[in-house]
Nucleic acid binder design. Structure first.
Length: 265
DNA sequence: AAGTCACGCAACCGCAAGTGC
DNA sequence: CGCACTTGCGGTTGCGTGACT
């Protein structure tokens, strides 16, 4: 908004997303997944940078996002988890089904922080903050983020579920490589097509999704795969896990626009 | 009713870490 | 082994909106 452009390429759109852009993004991800965020906007025909697409998907468009006010239980959970984990919002989000790190971060800064401030001050005066990051100073005061990323080395922070630190740490490859990683007990985005809970999660924004899914295929440059290509793709890709790249390559080849887009990948 | 203020949320930026070459 | 690229995370910004004066 008021800063210098983050994207190297000028001409890319910034600011609030339009419903049309949302539809295009959702449709593209459903069909092809998001193995490469950088290439995705080009392939989808969006004038956005990959980062922006990723953020939009993770924080708003994912079907398993729970919108609306936080319940008392959720707020309590955030407070408790923040006490344990510090400002590791993605780790906290991973433990709150349907909530995103951004959302939790916002809630913390706008509600919970203020609520806790008085008590916190006393506590801090008494001893150091537990996780070292609750104060919110310079970058990464608490635990190094590395441990919670793609190949979590047994997790620097024990409480974090080892298989994935964040709701946002989701890629199409996680579907194919790990299959349904719902072992932690809460729904994850990558599982929404293959997990039994998927249908339930899918209801969060039913009207939007039904609208999106009912869009005419002609709206997109590429011929549509039969039915929910995303789910089918994920499933079949999962079946062909060792070779998922080949699978997606084939999908692109069949889609017809690969001649234009693939060389840029 | 109009103007001002405060808050909430969506989005952006920079940096760190992982991965592939 | 080192470098370049991509992804993911946390901090921050600023617009939109409701509350208040």
């Amino acid at each position: 908004m008021g800063r210098a452009p983050c994207c190297e390429k000028m001409g890319l759109k910034k600011g609030p997303w339009t419903p049309e852009e949302d539809k295009v993004l959702v449709a593209h991800i459903q069909r092809f997944g998001h193995g490469n965020w950088r290439a995705l906007p080009k392939q989808a025909g969006l004038l956005r940078c990959g980062k922006s697409c990723r953020l939009r998907w993770i924080n708003y468009l994912r079907p398993d996002i729970k919108r609306g006010n936080f319940s008392k239980e959720e707020e309590d959970a955030i407070i408790r988890l923040h006490d344990q984990l510090g400002n590791r919002w993605s780790a906290i989000a991973a433990r709150l089904p349907g909530r995103t790190d951004n959302e939790i971060k916002n809630v913390w800064h706008t509600h919970l922080k203020k609520r806790l401030e008085p008590a916190k001050e006393e506590e801090v005066a008494a001893h150091e903050a537990p996780a070292g990051g609750a104060g919110g100073k310079k970058r990464r005061p608490a635990v190094k983020r590395g441990g919670a990323r793609r190949a979590p080395p047994a997790a620097a922070a024990a409480p974090v579920s080892p298989e994935r630190s964040a709701s946002s740490s989701v890629t199409e490859s996680s579907v194919t490589e790990q299959g349904n990683t719902g072992s932690s007990g809460f729904p994850k985005e990558e599982s929404f097509t293959s997990c039994p809970d998927a249908e339930e999660q899918f209801r969060f924004d039913e009207s939007f999704w039904s609208e999106t899914l009912s869009m005419p295929l002609e709206s997109f440059d590429v011929p549509m795969e039969p039915c929910d290509a995303f789910g089918a793709a994920a499933t079949s890709a999962s079946a062909a896990a060792p070779d998922d790249m080949d699978y997606w390559l084939r999908v692109f080849m069949e889609s017809g626009d690969v001649q234009q887009e693939l060389p840029q990948i």
